[in-house]
Simulated scan of single mutants.
Amino acid sequence: MKVSAPALLPLLRSQAQGEILAWVFLTPGEHSIVDIARAINIPETTVLREIDRLTATGFVLERRQGRSRLITPNPDNPATQPLTALLAITFGPAHVLRQHLATLDGVDYAAIYGSWAARATGAPGQPPADIDLLVVGEPSRTDLYELAEDASTTLRRPVNATVVDRATWLAGTDPFVATVRERPLITLIDNLHQARGA
Rank of each mutant, 00 (worst) to 15 (best):
S115K: 05
L61R: 12
T173G: 04
G92D: 00
H193F: 12
V159D: 07
D130C: 01
Q15Y: 13
L133M: 03
A16K: 08
E146L: 14
I71Y: 02
D76V: 06
D52C: 05
E62R: 14
T187F: 03
L61Q: 10
W23T: 10
I33H: 03
T84A: 12
L97W: 01
R53D: 12
P127Y: 01
P43H: 04
L192R: 06
Q65G: 08
G137H: 06
A151G: 03
P127C: 04
L9G: 06
H100S: 12
N160L: 13
A161L: 01
G58W: 02
A195G: 10
V164C: 08
Q194V: 10
I131G: 05
F91L: 00
R38N: 13
L8E: 00
Q65Y: 09
N191Y: 07
P158C: 00
A111Q: 08
A56S: 15
L54W: 01
D108W: 04
A5C: 11
P78I: 04
R38W: 09
W169M: 05
L8K: 04
Q15V: 15
D143R: 13
T168W: 02
V180E: 03
A5V: 11
G114W: 08
R69S: 11
I89D: 12
E30M: 10
G197E: 13
A151N: 05
P175R: 03
R141T: 15
R63G: 05
Q194E: 15
L61V: 06
T121L: 11
D35Q: 15
I40F: 05
E44D: 10
T187D: 11
G92F: 02
H193I: 13
L104C: 04
K2H: 13
A129T: 14
A111P: 07
D143Y: 06
F91H: 00
P158I: 00
G18K: 00
A118S: 12
E50H: 11
R157Y: 07
I189G: 09
T162W: 04
V96T: 08
W169F: 10
P73L: 01
I186Q: 15
T162K: 08
L185R: 11
L48E: 15
L12I: 07
R63P: 04
A123G: 05
D150T: 12
A16H: 09
Y109L: 09
R63V: 14
V60L: 00
P124E: 06
R183Q: 15
A178Q: 13
E50F: 09
A88N: 02
I189E: 10
A79F: 11
A123Q: 14
R141A: 12
E138M: 10
A123N: 08
P82V: 00
